[in-house]
Amino acid sequence: MSLLSTENVIKKYANHLALDKVSISVNEGQIFGLLGPNGAGKTSLIRIINQITAPDEGFVYFDNVPLKPQHVSQIGYLPEERGLYKKMKIGEQAIYLAQLKGMQKKIAQVKLKEWFIKFEIQDWWDKKVEELSKGMQQKIQFIVTIVHEPRLLIFDEPFSGFDPINANLLKTEILALKEKGSTIIFSTHNMASVEELCDDIALISNGKTILNGSLSDIKNQFKPNIFEIIFSKPFNKMEFAMNSFFELLSIEELRNESLSVKVKLKDPMATNELLSAGIKAGNIISFNEFIPSMNEIFINIVQKEKLKITEN
């Protein structure tokens, strides 16, 4: 079930095409990673989903109906460029922002107090924003984004400005929100957190979707079928290399009398053949497949895209 989807969304600015027929589908209850290099069009797409701007062409559906103004109360948005009124008291400000999302004042007050206690910042309620550190402000912004319990949450670089402890707290909260059934769109350049959190991803480059699918499918799609086997000596290289299922890439001497042997399988399913060849050649200590990190995939694809563009 998709909670939010876009269909061939096009957005033009005066001298460039920010989004070129972008279609994504965000499944209910999942964390969706929206990735892409700077200037790819992520923010343009997020602004369209938030109805800050309108698409020139194409459609956006929320809960299977075309996106409407009243949907804003069901969406929570933490923009990358974020701030608060410096001279306003934190409690007042949080209530004001919750009211703009359609919450009743009294309910907002109760919910906000709960969150303030949970984040151990209840003493700040009557302080002004300018008295707080940047990290503290980020906490408040996070609370303000989620307090109206929206069905769809959009986080644009949520971890920027957080120290590792608070970043971890935030990660736990995001996962807890997912547990409770929230759907989350997560835009970031931090690929490690994408691997930790995301179920599905889409990669946008130059306004086009160039990758779209579940994280595990994409990783499988991009794995190079390279395996590393570590043998203890002695190792019979001649016998090991004598077969047609794989090619030998490298042999490396390791400390404590062992060797690291890298091979590339010609048929991705031929792992058993590789193992049996290994057993004959020596004593296997470990057997691993190289899985590319999202970071590697990202860099790989974006660079290929760039090449394509320069060729054209």
Binding site: Q51, E81, R82, L84, L97, L100
Partner: peptide, 18 residues
């Protein structure tokens, strides 16, 4: 200008029209 330079504006216009 305060809203713009303080980066509050994007949060608010995700709830209301500019």
């Amino acid at each position: 200008m305060e809203e713009k330079t303080g980066r509050i504006v994007e949060i608010i216009i995700s709830s209301v029209k500019p």
